[in-house]
């Protein structure tokens, strides 16, 4: 079926927006329930069957709360920060393919596009940390800045290894070039990427920017109501984008039995498993201290990523 170009673009934008609005909520819901069951506690069970509507109830609560801008805040920086944190993930979601045909915008260097766009999201955290006019926010913002700059490098190196192996920067091309033995060949890179992704999302065990026992809630301390909810949404949207990206880069995306018809289902299934793994880490591990966090990035992840790059280079030359 051929659609007029304008209509097609509008339709795709609507679909991406719908995915952007629903998938992070699904992640949030999964986090509530998976955490509760892993820790052997019930969690809130009153709203809906098995407490399924709790997230909706939380959303309504956030909407009703007063939108407070502290007197000491840098007004516009403070107000714009949640949007700056959230929007990059929306743009990134548009170029990640679900199958060879299911991709909203198939740009030539989509891998670089996703990495470049998500790296802009950090300004939301920095702006929140600075704009709040609060010492805990400032310390948290600084921690976030240091952490994100450190983990950007191993992440890009690990992604570059896959791009080298596939011989293309296009996510669609990478997933098509993937075959099962990449699971072994690209294993160090996959581990580096996963750890760096969790750190970029500032999730446990790398959540020292938000450490509640040290800096209250870091950059988000002063936020209330919807703006606070947007930061939470950005975190969940980040999990969605990183899980999908990991799936496409290291797990072959839509590769699987009957991938011609079931492709997007495979992508969704694999990405869900990766997302649950990321949620699991939060329950399984304690917080890493700030200096340990930097040491891990520079003394373990970067060398490991460089080894992976060398390994990929040798592989490409020998087999390619």
């Amino acid at each position: 079926m051929e659609l007029p170009l304008t209509l097609e673009i509008i339709l795709k934008a609507v679909v991406v927006l719908a995915a952007f609005l629903t998938l992070p909520l699904a992640i949030g819901q999964t986090e509530h329930k998976v955490m509760a069951h892993m820790q052997g506690r019930l969690g809130p069970m009153e709203a809906g069957p098995h407490g399924i509507a709790q997230l909706v109830a939380d959303g309504i609560k956030f909407v009703q709360k007063e939108d407070v801008t502290p007197a000491a805040a840098d007004r516009w920086v403070f107000r714009l920060a949640p949007a700056v944190a959230l929007i990059p993930y929306l743009i990134a979601l548009a170029v990640i393919p679900w199958s060879a045909a299911w991709v909203a915008a198939d740009v030539p260097a989509s891998l670089l596009f996703v990495l470049a766009v998500t790296s802009v999201g950090i300004f939301g955290t920095l702006m929140a940390g600075w704009g709040s006019g609060n010492k805990y926010s400032l310390v948290g913002g600084m921690r976030a800045g240091a952490q994100l700059v450190s983990y950007e490098l191993p992440m890009v190196l690990a992604a570059a290894s896959v791009a080298m192996a596939a011989g293309t920067l296009s996510l669609t091309g990478i997933a098509q070039a993937w075959s099962w033995w990449w699971l072994v060949w690209q294993l160090p890179g996959a581990l580096v990427f996963l750890v760096a992704a969790v750190a970029e999302l500032q999730r446990v065990p790398f959540d020292s920017p938000l450490a509640d026992s040290e800096v209250v809630f870091g950059p988000y301390t002063e936020y209330t109501g919807l703006r606070f909810a947007f930061f939470l949404l950005a975190e969940y949207a980040g999990i969605v984008v990183m899980s999908l990206l990991f799936t496409v880069l290291f797990l072959g995306g839509w590769a699987g039995p009957w991938s011609d018809t079931l492709g997007p289902v495979w992508t969704l299934l694999k990405a869900t498993l990766v997302a649950i793994l990321i949620l699991w880490l939060r329950i399984a591990w304690p917080r890493v201290r700030e200096d340990q966090l930097q040491r891990l990035a520079w003394m373990v992840l970067v060398p490991l990523a460089l080894v992976q790059l060398a390994l990929t280079g040798v592989g490409v030359v020998v087999w390619g």
């Binding site: 470049a116 790296s119 300004f123 920095l126």
Partner: peptide, 19 residues
């Protein structure tokens, strides 16, 4: 690359130093 290097890394470092 401009976005990744300058916006995502260089200015972040500048802001970090300012803070």
């Amino acid at each position: 690359v401009q976005l990744l290097v300058y916006v995502g890394a260089v200015v972040v470092l500048v802001l970090f130093a300012l803070m």
